[in-house]
């Protein structure tokens, strides 16, 4: 769930940024999306990308933990019933 939200928000922001860029630099949205990926990423972006990956790992771990807890909770409920 959290991972999903992460991706969803990530792509929404991507589109928003591309939209603004395309409006400022007068090119189409598709170009904007593409340029973000290839042109604007600077060399030190590596740090941020690793930050993103850490965030992603965090999401996945939390999701797994939540899933396990839910399972356990369900089992406990099942036992009670």
């Amino acid at each position: 769930m959290i991972t999903l939200s992460y991706f969803l928000t990530f792509s929404s922001l991507w589109v928003l940024t591309a939209l603004f860029d395309s409006a400022l630099y007068h090119y189409s949205i598709w170009e904007g999306l593409k340029y973000l990926l290839f042109n604007e990423i600077s060399m030190d972006m590596v740090y941020l990308i690793s930050g993103l990956l850490i965030g992603l790992a965090f999401c996945i771990v939390t999701d797994i933990r939540l899933y396990r807890n839910k399972k356990k909770g369900n089992q406990a409920k099942g036992n009670k019933n």
Partner: peptide, 15 residues
């Protein structure tokens, strides 16, 4: 934490 990282990423990428 994940979304803070997202903010960090986009703070640089937005412009």
């Amino acid at each position: 934490i994940p979304f803070a990282m997202l903010v960090a990423f986009y703070s640089v990428l937005i412009s």
